[in-house]
Structures are given as C-alpha cells and as structure tokens.
Amino acid sequence: MLLNLGVLPAGLVAVVQAVLVPVCFVLAWVLVGTTAWNMVAAVRDSVARATVMHKIPCAECRYFTNDHRLKCPLHPKIALSEAAIDCADFESTGLV
C-alpha cells in the first residue's frame, strides 16, 4: 500500500513548517559562518607560514650556490629550511 503524502492534514503541515523553517534557517547560517571562519583561519595560517619562510636568509648569503644539488657548502642539510633562520655562518652578499 502506497502512502500518499499529498493528503496530509493542514495542521500537521503547519506544525512541520513552523519547526523546519527556523531549523533550516539556522543550519544554513551556521554552515555559512563555519565556511567563513575556515577561510579566515586558512588565510591567517598562510600569512603566518609565509612570514616564517621569509625569515630564511639563505638566498642573500654569500655561500648560497643556487644549485639544487648543493645549496650551501657549509650547511647543506639545513639550507633553505627553517633551521637556517639563525645560521651562525650567514654572510650577506651586500646586494640587498
């Protein structure tokens, strides 16, 4: 036996609408707010990461070779990484 949903009592339809409309409204705005919050957090994290990466001094160092096989003859393991931020052997090329 098939259930015909088009023949619901008017009172039941009004109750369902009175409950579902506000719930769906709130859920839609929660979804929009969560999406906006995640986008703001992603931008904030990207800016923080870029700030750290711009502190790496290797590209302006006298010993930087700009060769992918040996970036720095003094510290090849830490060249172009966050560990090179406070490199004791950094010497400026004077170009900057």
Rank of each mutant, 00 (worst) to 15 (best):
M1H: 13
L2F: 13
L2V: 14
L2G: 07
L2D: 09
L2N: 11
L3R: 10
L5A: 05
L5Y: 11
G6T: 13
G6Y: 10
V7Q: 12
L8E: 07
P9G: 10
P9K: 13
P9M: 07
P9E: 06
A10M: 12
A10F: 12
G11N: 12
V13I: 12
V15E: 01
V15C: 00
V15T: 07
Q17T: 10
Q17R: 13
A18P: 02
V19T: 04
V19F: 05
V19R: 06
V19W: 02
L20G: 09
V21L: 08
P22G: 00
V23S: 04
C24V: 13
F25K: 03
F25V: 05
F25Q: 04
F25C: 05
V26N: 00
V26I: 15
L27I: 06
L27D: 00
A28D: 08
W29C: 05
V30L: 02
V30F: 03
V30I: 13
L31M: 13
L31C: 13
V32P: 02
V32F: 14
V32N: 02
G33I: 08
G33T: 08
G33R: 04
T34P: 00
T34A: 14
T35Y: 13
A36V: 13
A36W: 11
W37V: 11
N38S: 13
V40D: 05
A42K: 14
V43N: 03
R44E: 06
R44G: 05
D45F: 07
D45R: 11
D45Q: 09
D45E: 11
D45H: 08
S46Q: 14
S46D: 13
A48S: 11
A48L: 10
A50S: 11
T51M: 03
T51W: 06
V52E: 05
H54F: 10
H54L: 12
K55W: 01
K55N: 05
K55G: 05
P57R: 07
P57Y: 03
P57N: 02
P57V: 03
C58N: 04
C58Q: 01
E60H: 13
C61L: 02
C61N: 01
R62F: 14
R62M: 12
R62T: 14
R62Q: 14
Y63P: 00
F64K: 01
T65R: 11
T65F: 01
N66F: 13
N66T: 09
N66W: 09
N66A: 15
H68S: 15
L70W: 06
K71E: 03
K71T: 08
C72S: 03
P73H: 03
L74K: 08
L74W: 03
L74G: 02
H75N: 09
P76G: 02
P76C: 01
P76M: 01
I78H: 06
A79E: 01
S81R: 13
S81V: 09
E82A: 11
A83S: 11
I85H: 05
I85L: 03
D86G: 06
C87Q: 03
A88N: 08
D89W: 06
D89F: 10
F90Q: 00
F90I: 02
E91T: 15
E91M: 09
S92K: 04
T93F: 03
T93W: 04
T93K: 10
G94F: 04
G94Y: 05
L95M: 11
V96T: 14
V96E: 09
